[in-house]
Design a protein around this nucleic acid. Structure first.
Lengths: 136, 136
DNA sequence: CTTGACCTTCCAGTGGCTGGAAACCTTATA
DNA sequence: TATAAGGTTTCCAGCCACTGGAAGGTCAAG
């Protein structure tokens, strides 16, 4: 049974985050020591690592909660997990698409900008241009 | 001179957001009407549109403030703007990279998951696997 | 006169932490 | 025994960029 700091080290999470997960009931400690310290056992360490990984894949806390309960449920069907993963996948694809567009626009602008002492700048022009009907 | 709602419509921003931008001093109204309503003129509309575009390219509020002041400064050099844009570009490339990795991982997992009633699920396994030293 | 659509201010909440204060516990050292 | 350093506890505030809602003022139409 580890104190919170050791549990944090063992799972690669910040101590504050482990405490936060306990507060929101995502991964609650196994119990408390006599002096009130949170105690984490193997099961909790595994859950914390599980959550760290799922968070790194940008699952929300609520989704992590859902995944954890599926993870704990011996009778779960993998269809639930898959549909959750596919939903996240679609969102990530969208985000990826937006980000690529953004990157291309910005790259195009930066390329067009000579970046010297002259005041004219295509970047600012593009932000300002074809605005709320101010000159065509 | 438009009221806040009309200004919001003209620039494609939510009314609340326009008010927020006024509160934080990003785009302050031209003045107030007798009854205390915020009033927006052409200049402010152009600034709001400018900000909307820059925000859509994921510039932060502070960066927008900086861009706006460059935009307003007749003596600015385009190098300032370009360096800001390039900095953002690098961040976006990083984010893109991470997101692609994330997508590939998740796609791989979803593909490996048969998604039926059987309880064994590669997605959960991968979250749980090679954890905090619990079985190798 | 009422209805409805505006507008105002202010306060609270979002997500997922993160920082800090004040106090307690443990261990090591002088 | 004092004390200092490091852990831990609780609670409260702040981050970002809004967003929602309450309570009230204003204005035009019917």
């Amino acid at each position: 049974m580890l104190n919170i700091g050791d549990a944090a080290n063992a799972t690669g999470l910040p101590t504050k985050t482990v405490r936060y997960y306990a507060d929101v009931g995502l991964v609650v400690p196994n119990g408390r020591s006599e002096n009130g310290y949170r105690l984490y056992g193997d099961v909790e360490l595994r859950k914390l690592t599980f959550v760290r990984r799922a968070r790194a894949l940008s699952f929300s806390i609520e989704e992590c909660r859902e995944l954890l309960s599926l993870y704990e449920d011996q009778d779960r069907s993998s269809a639930n997990v898959k549909s959750l993963a596919l939903k996240r996948l679609a969102e990530i694809e969208d985000k990826l698409h937006d980000l690529r567009k953004l990157r291309d626009e910005l790259a195009h602008l930066a390329e067009a900008c000579h970046g010297d002492d002259r005041p004219d700048c295509p970047i600012l022009d593009s932000f300002a241009g074809s605005g709320p009907r101010h000159n065509g």
